[in-house]
Write a protein that binds this DNA or RNA. Structure first.
Lengths: 356, 356
DNA sequence: ACGCGTAGTCAACACGTGTTGATCCCATCA
DNA sequence: TGATGGGATCAACACGTGTTGACTACGCGT
């Protein structure tokens, strides 16, 4: 390999030489500096900059200014056990919202996968520097491995990076932005009950949704039957939910409705029902939570509780900015309200159980 | 606001003082430096580093080493007219693939939206620096605005950043990684023809797919009817495709099959057919291209041509690395083959037209 | 003619690091 | 014992930039 002469980058000194001035002047011109420059000189410098195609060296700027001033980035760590957050429709929208809001705030963002950043100390040390990142957004699903490495890295984050916000799952004492899961579950289950359903199975995520499911049943005078709560595996959502749905189908008497913890699970359940020759919503009604993009495109359209994903993202960055402004002062966590979106999978537009 | 004393970061000098040595020694220890250090001294320095929680300043390192050595990033610019690539299942997988492969190569990546990076010169100048980015992947859908700003920014990329690879759409003379669109279309249409279909509508994207669609018809002795090629609007895929499908449904005689340019369009078509009381595949068969994640989860399952999205991503980075290795030498473009995935929407598992 | 303020410029320091020429000290060998 | 070598360390330079103290020249007032 011939070591072709690397063309050295153009520096302020080159510009200064070309314009016949001192280097400092060039700096003044670029930053509308702390000192004034004679109009005629300014023009000469600008011309030289244009001619040589000069571009300031960011590294030198950041070194000098202490990256605070020079525009530090905002870090986003997202994911579960792999990169695959990017391939999950719910988190996609969250991420898109984060990017949009960051752009609105003029913040550069640096994106890291959970796998890289939180389970690999070497990667963490090499890539996540307080020099470069002044704020961090953690987007972590419920279940993550509590390895020693993981805990150690959380410690480092805590001591190095002043501002951290969590989306979805609260971690340590960092402020959190979440949607109201219990309320979402109550909305979904309440809606099914109002349509006349009495045996409602739950394709579960065991968080506040379960509480909401249970409470909604009791509120409406129905009994809570643990057998109707079926496990689903976050690591293989589609397959595990499909199997659990098959179980539901085999029950006697068969539940007339299914509450799915999120839209992915609902879609999986619909597939299982379809494959067994059962119709949605005529034979089994379905309601879920999330309102991902395709929820309204598939047929039957999914009745689901809309989670304000983009607003959650926007709030997360707002909280981060607040933290930054009031140095280290604990910023409040946020719980956002949700809203039911009625489509066809619940059967509200078709019939009411027991009334036809 | 009380200007709480910013705690100055720990530097090599601090470590050196604490360990009672010269600063250079600290540098040697950290980098297993060009010079040897006495074992006993080394231990003292390491202890000091640990005690003070010293972390080298990346900006200074990069300044000194010229970011080439210090680990420069790999840039990804993706999107159409907005950030929404993140919310489109096809591009999600592409991006996930890029991140995965970058991780495998130990490359840090910096992600930019098309909107930020390619249409806003100010943002571009402020955030995309040759100092930091040694290679660039452009993930651009077919249609992008050819504004002056856009062209100007492409010029700047060309002169500042040595290595560029395009995914999906070739731009300028940069090397490209694409899947074989014409072959994909021929596979899809050929499959429908082999099932006995003779009137096949095309929910179109007007690229090599159209060529493939046309050629496949001719190859099988069918005539090409431009009326069967319906426009769809990339800016509002679902709605426009839905409307075009309604048109198809109203045709006399009605086409017995639809070839959709991608899975999103196929799902939209299925919705329109469902809403008009037509069954898939019994009344109208559907085949498309992409094989996005949900293609196998919805019912009927989507028969589609699998695009090797992750392999495309991996290849893109391979090409980038090749470019880097052989300084500026033009790297070859890559066209990846595709494969048909038969599910239920085509009807192959149900019946053959005219044979039952 | 002299003093003085000011607009404009230059030289020099600082940011924190990697690296090299020079220095010190001690062990080894003639 | 004196010279030699080399292991270990230090001081100093360089990377490219932002900023401050010092310097020059010029205009103005007395």
């Amino acid at each position: 390999m011939v070591p072709e002469n690397k063309k050295r980058a153009v520096t302020q000194q080159d510009v200064a030489d070309a314009a016949g001035v001192s280097r400092g002047i060039v700096s003044y011109v670029i930053n509308n500096g702390p000192r004034d420059v004679a109009p005629e000189t300014r023009q000469r410098v600008l011309a030289a900059i244009r001619d040589l195609g000069y571009q300031p060296n960011k590294n030198a700027q950041r070194l000098k200014l202490g990256s605070e001033q020079a525009g530090s980035s905002l870090g986003i760590i997202a994911g579960g056990e792999s990169f695959n957050v990017l391939e999950r429709p719910y988190y996609d929208t969250i991420l898109a919202g984060l990017f949009e809001e960051a752009h609105r705030l003029g913040q550069e963002v640096r994106f890291f996968s959970f796998f890289d950043a939180l389970t690999d100390p070497v990667f963490f040390n090499n890539n996540i520097h307080a020099d470069e990142i002044s704020g961090l957004v953690l987007v972590l699903p419920a279940l993550f491995p509590a390895t020693e490495d993981f805990q150690e890295i959380l410690d480092k984050i805590a001591e190095r990076i002043p501002n951290v916000v969590c989306l979805e799952e609260p971690i340590r004492d960092w402020p959190t932005v979440v949607f109201d899961r219990a309320a979402a579950a109550r909305l979904a289950v309440g809606h099914l009950i109002s349509l006349g359903h009495q045996r409602i199975a739950y394709l579960s995520i065991e968080d506040e949704r379960l509480t909401g499911y249970r409470q909604s049943l009791l509120d409406h005078g129905l009994s809570y039957d643990p057998q109707l709560v079926l496990a689903t595996d976050e690591a293989d959502v589609f397959e595990s939910t499909y199997q659990s749905t098959v179980e539901i189908i085999g029950m006697h008497p068969r539940p007339t409705a299914i509450f799915a913890a999120n839209d992915e699970r609902a879609i999986s359940a619909m597939a299982a029902l379809h494959d067994r020759g059962l119709r949605v919503p005529e034979d089994v009604a379905i309601v879920s939570i999330d309102n991902i993009g395709i929820a309204g495109m598939i047929r039957p359209g999914l009745t689901t509780v809309d989670v304000p994903k983009k607003r959650m993202a926007a709030y997360a960055l707002q909280v981060l900015m607040m933290q930054k402004q009031f140095q280290n002062r604990q910023a409040a966590s946020v719980v956002l309200p949700v809203q039911l979106v009625v489509r066809d999978s619940c059967g509200a537009r078709v019939r009411r159980v027991g009334l036809s």
